[in-house]
Design a protein around this nucleic acid. Structure first.
Lengths: 143, 143
DNA sequence: TTGCGTGCAAAGGTTTTGCATGGCA
DNA sequence: TGCCATGCAAAACCTTTGCACGCAA
């Protein structure tokens, strides 16, 4: 666990502003560095990494590991999902990168099961189901 | 996908023999290197990585990606399970970092549910449940 | 004999860290 | 003013790769 940033810096604000223009898009730390460099207002890569980490801790970004030997990718979490009452799990397709939102009861029950049987309090915000979506699974079979 | 090794080498045999003594145990490439070095018969790390990759392809080992910034971990698949679907899920505590292995049916059912209702084929090897373990949850409350 | 497997060392790419400087509160 | 954040460069880290040699078939 990391602490939240306490200061409202120019870099943090610019990063946030940028991320909000990318709903449903996933990007890497390098993408972010490149973007700001091209905009003529570069942000140090250490800063980018540190802010990304903070934002993930705050639930403002989600972090995905599609492939361990590729850079991690991030995605902005829509405003209305922030800490709201709506428990929502995410499933990420390793094929096309599509993010699926899961709201159904069965998924919720898993949280209850983990708590009752394993004493484990599940954090939906951080938990991502990795796998293959219907389209990609079909495409895979047709090969 | 990589090809299977065609040769039965001393290193491969020793690795396999060792892995068979580790049912249900997780180990990293570095663990394996260390073990054989301590045994006085070191195996080159490149060889270890290459054999691990082959063995995963052959279904003899499972490879899990728990955390992108930690080394990948491997687990020997019991003889009778080869080709079978027996893999375990993992729950990681955000507080103490403890990794919990989950083998219970309820968790497996989630995979079935995702497939039937959402067309999503879950990959247990990459899916990690994040949250707080019993000890850390208790400690948290006492603060 | 053929050519894959091995081992060493070095490269590769991503992420983290040390430290001096700069900026928010 | 007191700290935290930033940025640069270097380090750390895991994993892959190049190449010469060795060994299985």
């Amino acid at each position: 666990m990391t602490m939240k940033p306490k200061y409202k810096t120019k870099q943090r604000e610019e990063l946030l502003t940028y991320f909000k223009t990318l709903p449903g898009v996933h990007f890497t730390a390098a993408d972010v560095c490149d973007y700001f460099r091209q905009q003529g207002k570069p942000i140090g890569q250490a800063t980018v990494y540190r802010q990304l980490e903070s934002l993930v801790d705050e639930g403002i970004l989600n972090k995905y590991i599609i492939d361990p030997n590729s850079p991690a990718c991030f995605e902005y979490v829509e405003e209305h999902e922030h800490g709201g009452a709506t428990v929502c799990f995410h499933a990420k397709c390793a094929g096309c990168g599509k993010l699926i939102h899961l709201h159904c009861d069965e998924i919720i029950k898993i949280g209850e099961h983990l708590k009752e049987e394993h004493g484990f309090v599940l954090d939906p915000k951080r938990t991502v189901f990795y796998g293959t979506c219907a389209e990609c699974a079909t495409a895979e079979l047709e090969k």
